[in-house]
Each structure stands twice: as C-alpha cells, then as structure tokens.
C-alpha cells in the first residue's frame, strides 16, 4: 500500500509544524515540512503531495489579524496553484492559525474562486487567549471524510481569535450555507462562535479548517484526564468523561487524520 504524501508548511511564525508532521506520520502519511519561501519559489511542487497542512501557530506574530499576512503572502504567488490543487480533489487542512489563513484566503466555506467571502474569525468573546480541552460534536449531515465514525470527541483549543463571525448584513441563505458547512461544533459556547461552530469545510469536503488541534491528541497521555483512564473502576462524574481508555480506541485527533489518510489511499 502506497502511503499518501503530505506537505506541512512552516516558517514565518508557524509553530505546530513538528507535531503536525509527527501526527500525520502516525496517521499513515509520508509527511515533510516545506518552508513558505520554498513553496512560493516553486508553487507547482505542491501538486506532488495529496495533502497540504497549514499548522497552528502565530504566523507574522498574529499582528493586524490572525492569519491575514500569511494569507496575503500565499495569495500573491500560490493562489492559482491552490485553486487548481483543490479542484483536483487534493486535501487542504488548516488547523487553528491555518484555519484563520484559509478563511483569510476566502477558501471556506466555499473554495470556488467566484464565491464571495462569508465568514471571518475574530477575537474570542472573552477577549482572551484560551488553552483548554473541549468537547466537540460532529455534524450528522456533513460530507467530510475526516469525521467518519466520530460523534463526540475531545480536543484542545489554543486560540485568541477563534470566534467565527459573519457580516452583519448576511442573508439567511448565507447563514444557512455556513451552518451546512460546519462539520464540528463546541458542545458548550467557548468563544462566542456563530452557531458554536468549531470547523468548516468546503463544498467538496476536501478543504477543512478547524480551531481545535487534532495533532495534539494522537496519544492518550495527551488527554487531561488520561491518568484516570488507567483506573476504569472510577464512577461517573461531571467533566470530560474518559469513556474510552487506551485499550478501546484511537485518540480522537489521530482518528481524524487516519480518516484523511484512508480517504486518500
């Protein structure tokens, strides 16, 4: 079986490249890091990989607005190739800051060149950066292979600008479209996001942007309650329930990435 190839962007303040490479590797990809400058010098190199990951981080220091300057940098030299890449059905995965870049590029919730920009990601309603683990629900209506077989999952969020927002004059149809492309929602309101949306996909389902970090849950001991999972006799209490112990399943972030690898084989 040939493993699908993945590029993981790094440089310019991207932070999560190393763990994203590691997670994709565990999930069955052959990943390699590619620096923004290298990709922009040879944009067509992109077409040699089946997946492009834009990892989390603070590209350009998150100055002006998260993801905006990296989006401008990519747009100038990469946008045509990127449209081509998406049109061919290759996969683009934007995590956290990568999601913000995809939104700034106007690739979500529609990656048609003609589609108007519908959403933006703004400061959390608390106006604070948040690092905590959250419970997430997948959408029963989604067309995204990423979440196949998953319903309720746990992942960490680590962002200051994760509140999905629409223009004030958005039409009901536009709001519906955004909701339809939402593939993951927070179980509770954590950042004021529109319709508690945590992730968006495009019409084909091959572009995914999500605020939570799947690459940060590829081993059980990354879960904040993992020390409990060693002792299955514990009674049920409120909070993040560790209903699946290492013996029973794959960590949720790894599941998402393995689904992607499976879809690409």
């Amino acid at each position: 079986m040939i493993k699908p190839k993945a590029f993981v962007l790094y440089g310019d303040g991207i932070n999560c490249d190393a763990e994203t490479v590691w997670a994709l590797n565990l999930a069955g990809f052959v990943p390699s890091r590619v620096h923004t400058s290298e990709l922009l010098e040879t944009p067509r190199k992109l077409l040699t990989a089946q997946l492009l990951a834009l990892p989390g981080g603070f590209s350009f220091g998150d100055e002006i607005a998260s993801g905006r300057v990296l989006a401008i940098k990519l747009k100038e030299k990469l946008k045509d190739v990127l449209f081509d890449y998406i049109e061919r059905g290759s996969v683009v995965l934007g995590i956290c800051n990568g999601f913000q870049v995809l939104v700034q590029l106007g690739l979500l919730p529609s990656s048609k060149a003609s589609a108007p920009r519908l959403v933006t990601l703004r400061h959390n309603s608390s106006a604070k950066f948040i690092n905590r683990w959250v419970e997430l629900e997948t959408s029963p209506f989604n067309n995204s292979f990423f979440f196949e077989g998953l319903t309720t999952i746990h992942l960490p969020i680590r962002h200051g600008e994760g509140r999905l927002a629409l223009a004030a004059d958005s039409s009901p149809a536009q709001c519906e479209l955004v909701k339809r492309r939402a593939v993951l929602r927070y179980a509770e309101d954590v950042n004021g996001s529109f319709d508690k949306i945590a992730a968006l996909t495009n019409e084909k389902g091959n572009v995914l942007g999500l605020m939570p970090h799947p690459e940060a849950f590829v081993r059980w001991s990354q879960h904040p309650a993992w020390t409990l999972s060693k002792y299955p006799t514990r009674s049920e209490k409120a909070g993040l329930k560790v209903t699946v112990s290492p013996a029973f399943g794959v960590p949720h972030g790894l599941s998402i990435l393995m689904n992607a690898a499976k879809a690409m084989r």
Partner: peptide
C-alpha cells in the same frame, strides 16, 4: 501544550 509533548499539564483531571 504546543509542540505536542505534554503528559502532565498544569491543570489535569476530568474537570
């Protein structure tokens, strides 16, 4: 948690 290495974090447990 960035760098994906954490095992015991500052705040743990189900809550």
């Amino acid at each position: 948690e960035v760098q994906g290495a954490s095992v015991i974090k500052p705040l743990m447990g189900p809550l």
